[in-house]
Simulated assay, not measured.
Amino acid sequence: MAGIVVLILGNIAFQVAAERKNPRVGVFIECDGVRLHYIERGDAAAPCVVLFHGNGTMIQDLILSGLVDRLAASYRVVCFDRPGFGYSQRPRTRIWTAKTQATLFAKALDQLGVRNPVVLGHSWGTLVAIALALQSDYPVRGLVLASGYYFPTFRIDFWLMSGPAVPLLGDLMRYTIAPIISWAIMPKLIRMLFAPRAIPPQFKNEFPISLSLRPKQLRAAAEESAFLIPVAAQLALQYQAIQCPVRIVHGKSDQLIETDQSRRLHEMLPSSLLHLIEDAGHMVTYADTAEIADAVAALAFTSPGRAPLGGGPTRFARRNYFRS
């Protein structure tokens, strides 16, 4: 018992120290009883791009990739810490599926005066982006989906990572051994996410890993690991109802989520465009930032809910893509 108490107090102290070392980078908005942390960059009068990060990361991931600055040169960019990550709250009174998050973000974007955005999601964030596009009361101009998991498959690794989300036992794990285990496996996990490329220096030197190891963020990450397969199964029944144009990007060498996930989604959405990036892993946002920015540009000036005409003069439109 004494050892458990020491671990709990140590993890609480670690969380406080991590937040002092890595203060928030944005501002807060209160929406539907949830405090959301976000940044806004670029021209407020320009078309808007909304960015959703993946599981386990936060706003800083998309900043360090260069996407935020690149897109802010031409667009209004709004980037959130999704619930439970970074400095956004994740109340335990809700089950935070992709649909629950999308409903919250639709209200938050309305409060910010954002309508008809291009929505870019990476990894778990692709499910939130899709769920937002399926909201009947919130128009989305287009989707850019990077490294997504869209169809249920047998993945024992996701279930194994969901332990800290289990009530009571998971709470004890999060404040005792889970941060230590996560710290130990983090270097290998990060190498796998970026493989076959090296970890970019800006990520290695500047990403606030200590924030990712806080007990409250470990709960959010564990919940999303547990929800991934059922959420994908639920959304897979609705993909054909997506009305806006879709651009799909995936690294050919992704070691976390198989490329076939993006191929299958592309086949289900005949008007979509798919680009598989050579020599790129799961963190495709770092592997070809310009390519993804071009995907946004191809959609930014189209009519909401309609496929773009003529493809536009962007590099994304000029390249060769797999079509069904």
Rank of each mutant, 00 (worst) to 15 (best):
Q255D: 06
T93K: 12
I29H: 02
I185L: 10
L112N: 07
K107E: 12
E223M: 10
L299V: 02
A221T: 15
Y138T: 02
G56D: 03
I59T: 04
Q135G: 06
A45K: 14
W124Y: 10
R319A: 13
A178W: 06
P313Q: 06
Y321H: 12
D171T: 13
L256G: 05
A13C: 13
G163E: 07
S262D: 03
G56E: 05
K252P: 00
W183K: 15
N205Q: 15
A195W: 14
V231Y: 04
T302D: 03
V27W: 07
W124H: 05
P304V: 05
I4P: 04
V5R: 10
C79R: 03
R197C: 12
G42H: 11
N116F: 11
Y150R: 00
H275V: 14
Q243M: 09
N320V: 12
N11S: 13
L273Q: 15
D254A: 02
F301G: 10
R323F: 05
Y150A: 00
I29T: 10
A233L: 09
K216S: 12
F158Q: 11
A297C: 05
I63D: 09
I181D: 10
V50W: 00
A290P: 02
P196C: 09
N205M: 14
F158S: 11
L265S: 00
V119N: 07
M186L: 15
V77S: 02
R76M: 10
M268E: 14
E30P: 02
M268A: 15
P23G: 09
R247F: 02
D157I: 03
L235K: 04
S303Q: 13
Q255Y: 10
L64V: 00
G42K: 10
I180W: 13
S271P: 08
D110T: 12
V16T: 14
Q240L: 07
G170I: 01
F85T: 06
F227V: 08
D294Y: 06
A280Y: 06
I156T: 09
